[in-house]
Design a protein around this nucleic acid. Structure first.
Lengths: 365, 365
DNA sequence: TTGAAAGCGCTAACAC
DNA sequence: GTGTTAGCGCTTTCAA
């Protein structure tokens, strides 16, 4: 139990608020009461004469007054802050999300509290608890947990929770909104692409983690292959390894590398590899090269997400684009929708887009 | 003037605080006064009997009490929050910083408010202002501005400001602390490395932005080359282009690409290219390949920063490592050092490390 | 060793 | 149309 630790104190009074001009100062200077100033601040301008309004507004400007959020929050219980819990902003995918969520929040005057769970369920839970006890009432959660039941009581208490990069599950608590790309369709598009290139022996590489995504992407992928006459059991997968458990920024790539090295060394290696996401795909590419093969030529490699690096990578990665900006904006917006609607709009699915670049090519003749 | 916009209201009372157990509830349940609880919360345990302490502590646990930060802040004027202003967390370099700063903050119970300036000076300034008016008294600022004079008045008011990725300048306001890697030494190491590989015709690629960094890296680089007998005027630079002005996540890479394409097309092209940072180096690599040449073989390419991607890139990038984790921790710590020290410790320089990977090799015979 | 009480800046009844 | 005022949850003197 250690909650303390303040700033090194400075030489000012007991309440050293910077720019310490309060609503009372404004009221006095403008010759009105604090209520009037407050009313103006809160858009209730119809309750005052235009001239009063003028006077107060100019006084605010003159004094450089800015309302104190802490006081406002204490009174209303509603801070102008949302929480964002991601595995790690060091990962470009989550970094991009954080950037766009922050941008969306900014348009409404909200700030974003950033939390990196490092894929630790305990930490994830603790963050949510802390945010709630900070009075925060809207959280975008990018959970690594398959079940979100542990937050259902918070939901019932009125917390607005949006789960990002995760589709709705049967056991989801009421009030939860999911924002995600349509993984199934995305993977299906990729499956079609690979098949159209003539590939028949195709592998799917992923870890066991992020399992909802994994499952959906795998299913969509299989669907496309089956339509092309490739049987489910002919699709190569990788049994997994110890790398799996300790995911981080680099581990996804490492997983791809290890898996691919094994796959390529085995009998009858695949001519194309679909990785569950771009970071993994990058690891796959590395292993392909390490095996003395050329990506896009000897072995086609595809990813999912279309992170910034995908385009920059060498060779540029064929992938499935998630419309991050739109998804982030939707996630933020969803934080403000009333939760006591009929419970219908529980999942927001976005349309993925196939992006063909240089890492995939026709099967080597 | 628009400050309002609350959450959709729910069915609860006028002060719908979630988990609404207050210090008073605890006090009553434990049969003590609020002061005692507060004392405990703030580590003043010596002011009470061990048994009282026991009782209060268990009551806190039983009731699931968590102090309300807004109220605490209102009272103390000191929120347990710091601000972090970066160009964009979408960029892996800043993403990594954000991750490590947040981790450092967490160890002391602090949360991090994330702000993306998108390299817009106006936005950067506005963010700082807002954070201050939120009562935040510690900010890590990753500014794109060469001068930080516009915040000097805030500094005088007691704001703790740490400028990251920037070395001290003569015009810096008093109280500012700079945290940065030693760019000069880092670039020098890289210069030596390239020279030792036999390269004599070497180019330096950068944009005009991030100019303090750029200057220092360029100077250090030149120093190493001059020592090897390569004259300053023989070092190839790139005059710059319009890309320069509109930097973003991808633009650094784009800059590297454009510059390199021109350099390689010119007479007497360089055999090695040192880019001002890794993102730019990635663009350089792309251009090298586009020109039909092999990175590390025909042309050596080096970067600076050692972002996650550097290792993952293909070929893995030779670069200069910044100890981000340590730097981030130091930046957070610096937020708590008294500003009214003698003004000496105004700059924290970290030791860079040369990381040789596959993108550099001996000059082609 | 513990408690009573004032007050941080703001909002929203409610009174005028 | 405008003012008065209670009180959000907490910390911190000051008194007991």
């Amino acid at each position: 139990m250690h909650w303390q630790m303040g700033w090194i104190s400075n030489r000012r009074g007991p309440h050293p608020h910077m720019a310490g001009v309060t609503i009372l100062d404004v009221a006095r200077a403008a010759g009105v009461s604090t209520s009037t100033v407050s009313n103006l601040l809160n858009g209730r301008t119809e309750r005052m004469l235009p001239e009063t309004r003028q006077r107060v507004e100019s006084t605010i400007r003159k004094l450089g007054y800015r309302p104190n959020r802490a006081a406002r929050q204490l009174r209303t219980g509603k801070p102008q802050v949302i929480g964002l819990v991601v595995p790690s902003v060091g990962n470009p995918y989550w970094g991009a999300l954080a950037r766009h969520v922050e941008a969306a929040a900014l348009t409404q005057g909200f700030h974003v509290l950033l939390c990196n769970s490092e894929r630790d369920p305990g930490r994830e839970r603790q963050y949510v608890d802390e945010l709630v006890s900070d009075g925060i009432r809207g959280i975008v959660l990018c959970s690594s947990l398959p079940s979100l039941e542990h937050v259902s009581s918070l939901l019932e208490d009125g917390l607005r929770l949006v789960a990002f990069d995760r589709t709705a599950q049967a056991t989801d608590p009421v009030g939860l909104i999911n924002v995600s790309v349509d993984n199934t369709i995305g993977a299906e598009l990729m499956g079609e692409h690979l098949v159209s290139l003539g590939h028949r022996r195709i592998a799917f590489v992923s870890g066991a983690i992020r399992s909802i995504n994994r499952t959906e992407r795998f299913e969509g992928f299989l669907r496309a292959l089956e339509r092309a006459g490739i049987a489910r059991q002919d699709v190569v997968t990788w049994p997994g390894s110890s790398v799996d458990s300790q995911f981080g920024d680099v581990e996804a790539a490492e997983l791809g590398r290890v898996a691919t090295t094994e796959l390529l060394a085995g009998p009858n290696p695949p001519t194309a590899i679909f990785a569950v996401n771009d970071m993994t795909a990058i690891g796959v590419c590395r292993a392909v090269r390490d095996a003395g093969l050329e990506v896009g030529q000897d072995v086609s490699v595809a990813g999912f997400d279309d992170i910034v690096l995908a385009e920059l990578y060498s060779p540029a990665l064929t992938t499935v684009r998630q419309p991050m900006k739109e998804m982030a904006a939707a996630a933020f917006r969803a934080l403000h929708t009333p939760q006591d609607d009929d419970g219908s709009g529980t999942s927001l699915l976005f349309r993925p887009e196939l992006v063909v670049r240089d890492s995939t090519g026709p099967v080597a003749g």
